[in-house]
C-alpha cells in the first residue's frame, strides 16, 4: 500500500469534479450529526478513483451530495468549469443536472424491469428530449462498446448479473456525463466479474473522458485504483493505490 498523501487538489487539472471543504450536518441543536466535516476531493476526466471507508463514515452522504440528491451544509463543488455548489446550489434545475451531467451506477443494477435493454439505456436521452431514434442509436453504440449488443432486445430479467451491470454502466454513460458516481458496483459479483466491471469502467472513463468515483469496500477491486480517498468521521484523505489487475 502506498503512503497516504494530503493536499489532493493541486495535483489534478481543473476539469472533472472538485470538492472543497464540503460539509453536511443532519438535524439541529444537541441532536445534530456532522456526517461530512470538510471533504476535499478532485477527480480528473478519464480517471477512476476509489472512495472507501467503514460503515457510517459518510460515504453515502458524500455520494448523495455529489449526486445533487441532498443539499450540503457548506463548501464548494465544481463540475468541469461550472460551480454547482458554493454555500448553496448554483444550478436551478438539479433534476436536469443529474440527468445530463452525472451518471449513476448502483450496487444493484436497478434497470427498469418493463423496458428492454436498449430502452433502459435510451431512456435518459429521451428524457432529455432527444428523438427516440437518435437515443436508441446512441444506446446501441454503447451496448456494442460494452459487449452486450447481442442482448439489446432482452428484458433485464433475462440478463446475468454481469450483463445487467454492464447495461447499467451504459445507462450511466449514455448522456456523456462528465462524472459517474458508482455505489458499490461490484458488490454482488464474484472476483472475475468484479474485475471485468472495473476494467470496463476504466476503459469507458478513458474513452469518454469521464471522471469516475467508485464507492466501495470490496477488497477485490481496491487494488485496481491508482488513487483512493479514504473517508472516516466525515473527512477524507487521499492515498495512492496499486493500480493493478486491470491488464
Amino acid at each position: 500500500m502506498a503512503e497516504p498523501t494530503t493536499g489532493p487538489l493541486g495535483a489534478h487539472p481543473a476539469q472533472g469534479i472538485r470538492i472543497e471543504g464540503l460539509r453536511k450536518r443532519y438535524g439541529r441543536g444537541d441532536t445534530a450529526v456532522d456526517a461530512l466535516r470538510g471533504v476535499d476531493m478532485a477527480v480528473a476526466p478519464g480517471e477512476v478513483v476509489g472512495l472507501v471507508g467503514p460503515s457510517g463514515s459518510g460515504k453515502s452522504t458524500l455520494l448523495k451530495c455529489l449526486g445533487a440528491v441532498i443539499e450540503p451544509s457548506g463548501g464548494r463543488m465544481t463540475l468541469g468549469e461550472a460551480s454547482i455548489y458554493d454555500e448553496g446550489w448554483r444550478i436551478p434545475d438539479l433534476r436536469a443536472l443529474r440527468r445530463d451531467k452525472i451518471g449513476f451506477v448502483f450496487q444493484a443494477p436497478y434497470l427498469i424491469p418493463f423496458l428492454d435493454v436498449t430502452d433502459n439505456v435510451a431512456l435518459l436521452p429521451m428524457l432529455a428530449g432527444r428523438p427516440n431514434g437518435e437515443s436508441r442509436e446512441r444506446a446501441r453504440e454503447l451496448l456494442a462498446a460494452l459487449d452486450v449488443e447481442h442482448r439489446a432486445r432482452a428484458m433485464p430479467s433475462q440478463l446475468s448479473g454481469g450483463e445487467q451491470q454492464r447495461v447499467a454502466i451504459a445507462r450511466a454513460l449514455v448522456n456523456r456525463p462528465p462524472v459517474i458516481l458508482a455505489d458499490e458496483p461490484t458488490a454482488p459479483l464474484d472476483s472475475e466479474r468484479a474485475l471485468a466491471v472495473m476494467r470496463i469502467l476504466n476503459r469507458m472513463a478513458r474513452q469518454y473522458q469521464t471522471a469516475v468515483i467508485v464507492v466501495t469496500h470490496d477488497e477485490k477491486i481496491i487494488p485496481t485504483f491508482e488513487r483512493i480517498y479514504h473517508i472516516r468521521d466525515g473527512r477524507t484523505h487521499e492515498e495512492a493505490g496499486e493500480g493493478r489487475g486491470l491488464e
Binding site: 443529474r98 440527468r99 428524457l127
Partner: peptide
Amino acid sequence: VLKLIGTR
C-alpha cells in the same frame, strides 16, 4: 431510480 436519473 427514475427520479434520480432526472425523470420529471
